[in-house]
Design a protein around this nucleic acid. Structure first.
Length: 522
RNA sequence: GGCGAAGUAGCUCAGCUGGUUAGAGCGGUGGAAUCAUAAUCCAUAGGUCGGGGGUUCAAGUCCCUCCUUCGCUACCA
């Protein structure tokens, strides 16, 4: 019986085209989803776009477009990015979908039925230009006694009618939930921040707006639209059928993990659980806040001009190279640094030189010396056993254990250790020399390597699915053993005895070169 | 200001609940090999583990303090 596994990325706000951070999150989440599938779990993977809110409306207006058209266009960029990057989502949700509006209104009614919504006035110093409220203390005095926001824009005392959510009521329940579920928030640093924040006291939350209408209408108050976060978070349940009692809903909620950026941890660890408690729905099992990608150690920003287009990187270096780099180089949960040099160095060292070359040299030897037929295993040498054991342990024990902990970089480190062991084995055994001195021994060595390489390819599928599958195809490894449960089973002999023959091997991990012109124009 | 994270070899980083000569990858250096994507393998490079103090038989690993960087939060009436 496989336990269902429901994983989501954050639902991206498509106010601009996707940047490397969106790609990173999607890739990391995809790797986890793929791992769980290969580990025998029934997986549901949801990603999508959160398209409501004032900013979308304003952006559209600025471009002279209908908001809906802009949302369609921007959302498509995100979906295309996922397709390009081999993101294996099951649902790409859009908050503008009718079904999502229905779900949002349904959860609203649940909050209301629970007595957690009330109509009040939201008042404060409001900057029309910033579209934001400020505290008295944040303001400065401008000319003629005009109050100014921290951004230097004029503010006015504004009163707006708003629905409020009794967040304060959930202060204790949340703290109790955190205490009872230590694994709910990860990494720990984010957990501490959240707990401190809640302990500091929660104020009721304004959950509707009347100043614009690009959103989900509040049931019974048609001049209000729902607060974007209430609407956006609901996407995690509307995507799998809520409020209908669908099979998917029953199977997959509560989510196993929400993968999000560290900047939106609070929305997922405070507001979202509170909404769910109020709605009498189970809470997600884990919220993981990953770090940011820095460009050469610096924050990416439009003004610095160092914003990276993930599609360009994928085009330049290859999808799998990009995926491998991000998951190997960045410790999941921490910030990471990116640069073209780092990608080239890492990918060449690990994928091209170590693993790619290992596969290529082994398959070439089999192709040339065995006419492409898989060599027989004659007798087991101690060295063979040792290598098989080492690789076997990595593939069926260490690597999955790290994946399970969402420690992709460590999973890959363990993977590389096994790759190194294979290369060392090749050099010691020197099958090219055995060809004349002891052909039977050569066959055993090549067979041993073939088995190990196949297992390594199986284990790395979550990270670099495209090339791993191509390699496994070249090697004729049966589909039903391409997972963590069966990688170590005895599939080799049947494959060899079945007369499988490899073709001239094709290199799958080309060496990368640094693009010649980098940042030439200022 | 409060809370928290980080500061380890040239570079990027591992080092769990304290315990033999502080680890890996990349780079550098010296060998070996030539099957393979000029890829691989072996050996090596002598870092006061940010500074100082303390606890302990023993601290990178605990406590205090200071410095630097970063995050969250508060305040600047």
């Amino acid at each position: 019986m496989s336990e269902p596994f429901y994983i989501t990325t954050a639902i991206a706000y498509p106010n601009g085209k996707p940047h490397i951070g969106h790609a990173y999150e999607a890739i990391a989440t995809d790797a986890i989803a793929r791992f769980q599938r290969l580990n025998g779990r029934e997986v549901c993977f949801v990603t999508g776009t959160d398209e409501h809110g004032l900013k979308m409306d304003q952006t559209a207006r600025g471009l002279g477009k209908a908001t809906r058209d802009l949302a369609d266009e921007m959302s498509s960029y995100f979906k295309n990015m996922c397709t390009t990057l081999d993101i294996s989502f099951d649902h790409f949700c859009r908050t503008t979908a009718d079904s999502h509006h229905i779900a949002s209104q349904a959860i609203w009614k649940r909050l209301e039925a629970n007595g957690d919504l009330y109509l009040d006035r939201y008042e404060g110093w409001y900057s029309v230009r910033d579209e934001a409220y400020y505290d008295e203390g944040e303001l400065t005095d401008g000319e003629g006694g005009q109050k100014l926001s921290p951004q230097g824009t004029p503010v006015e005392w504004t009163v707006e009618e708003s629905w409020f959510f009794r967040l304060s009521k959930y202060e204790q329940p949340l703290l109790e939930y955190y205490a009872a579920n230590p694994g709910f928030m990860r990494p720990d640093s984010r957990k501490n921040e959240t707990i401190k924040f809640v302990e500091g006291g929660l104020k009721d939350l304004s959950v509707s707006r009347t100043s614009f209408d690009w959103g989900v209408k509040v049931p019974g108050s048609e001049n209000h639209v729902m607060y974007v976060w209430l609407d956006a978070l609901t996407a995690y349940i509307s995507a799998i059928g809520f409020p209908d009692d669908t099979e998917e809903w029953r199977k997959f909620w509560p989510a196993s993990v929400h993968i999000i950026g560290k900047d939106i941890v609070r929305f997922h660890t405070v507001y979202w659980p509170a909404f769910l408690m109020s709605a009498r729905l189970p809470l997600p099992k884990m919220v993981f806040g990953h770090g940011f990608l820095l460009s050469r150690g610096e924050k990416m920003s439009k003004s610095l001009g160092n914003v990276v287009d993930p599609m360009e990187l994928a085009q330049l270096f290859g999808v799998d190279a990009l995926r491998y780099f991000l998951l190997r180089e960045v410790s999941f949960g921490q910030d990471g640094s990116y640069s073209p040099e780092a990608i080239v160095t890492r990918v060449n060292a690990d994928l091209a030189n170590s693993f790619g070359n290992l596969a290529q040299r082994t398959l070439s030897l089999i192709f040339k010396n065995c006419e492409g037929y898989l060599p027989r295993i004659h007798d087991h040498h101690g060295d063979d056993q040792a290598l098989l054991e080492l690789v076997g342990n990595a593939v069926s024990f260490h690597i999955p254990a790290h994946f399970e902990e969402l420690a992709m970089s460590q999973a890959l480190e363990a993977w590389m250790q096994a790759v190194f062991a294979c290369n060392a084995y090749v050099d010691v055994q020197a099958p090219w020399a055995l060809k004349k001195t002891d052909p039977a021994r050569m066959e055993t060595v090549l067979a041993t390597l073939f088995i190990c390489i196949a297992q390594l390819a199986i284990a790395v599928q979550p990270i670099i699915p495209g090339s791993a599958i191509k390699l496994l195809d070249q090697m004729g490894v049966p589909r039903d053993v391409r997972n963590f449960g069966h990688a170590g089973s005895h599939w080799y002999s049947p494959l060899a005895e079945g007369g499988f023959q490899i073709a001239q091997p094709i290199g799958l991990f080309p060496r990368l070169e640094l693009p010649a012109e980098q940042g030439a124009s200022a």
